[in-house]
């Protein structure tokens, strides 16, 4: 997917043009049940469908200093309010590993994850495998979220650059990007989610 360069991201956020209708429809699937990290999770979700978010609509722009990614999706009516809606994108720190493994020791992935609810906000997470995610570096991550009934629109931003544990981002380069989304209203959290199966290219315009 392409990440257009704009003059100022804040102007885009205030209602300016995103990528000129160049949205990417990212197909999502439920994470495989056998790969869930605990017997309890597997057992308790065996009879219950999850991964209800089938498609993410993604747009990305940058202004040379910061990246903004807009993620849009729709969920079925909620059955609980215990868990927040959440969405995340992952970028590789060095090399890529299979997205479904949530990173590996030698190939960590850097995730920016937004969630709504009581602890709303965006968190920088460094993952080196399933169930291993930990605090990630501060990359000035911010989010702007909007909910309209069952439709969500979340913009996550971070600054460009590189640093220990951070996925490097530089204008004019190409990296990989992967996605995950949680339908909190369906009690989705942790590994119970939908994800983009594989990495996509993220091409940052020069």
């Amino acid at each position: 997917m392409k990440c257009k360069r704009v003059s100022r991201i804040d102007l885009v956020l205030e209602g300016g043009q995103w990528s000129g209708g160049d949205s990417t429809q990212v197909e999502m699937i439920a994470t495989p049940l056998p790969m869930q990290p605990t017997g309890y999770v597997i057992k308790s979700w065996a009879e219950k469908p999850y991964g209800t978010i089938k498609t993410l609509t993604v747009d990305a722009v940058h202004d040379g200093h910061a990246l903004a990614v807009r993620l849009q999706w729709e969920v079925p009516p909620a059955t609980t309010t215990d868990f927040p809606p959440a969405v995340a994108f992952a970028l590789p720190v060095k090399a890529t590993s299979p997205l479904v493994l949530m990173g590996m020791a030698e190939a960590p992935m850097h995730i920016l994850r937004w969630q709504g609810g009581a602890q709303a906000g965006v968190r920088s997470v460094l993952a080196k495998g399933i169930g291993s995610s930990n605090h990630g570096p501060d990359v000035g991550q911010k989010a702007l979220a909007r909910q309209d009934g069952n439709r969500f629109s979340v913009v996550i931003t971070r600054v460009l650059g590189s640093g220990a544990g951070a996925a490097p981002l530089k204008a004019g380069t190409t990296t990989k990007i992967g996605f995950a989304a949680w339908d909190g209203g369906n009690e989705e959290r942790a590994g119970i989610k939908s994800f983009s199966v594989d990495w996509l290219d993220l091409v940052l315009a020069a």
Partner: peptide, 19 residues
């Protein structure tokens, strides 16, 4: 918007602190 603008305008350092 305020913070976001600030971050993008004022911080052009291309390195981050360790997590």
């Amino acid at each position: 918007l305020k913070i976001s603008a600030g971050a993008s305008a004022g911080l052009a350092m291309h390195s981050f602190a360790a997590a």
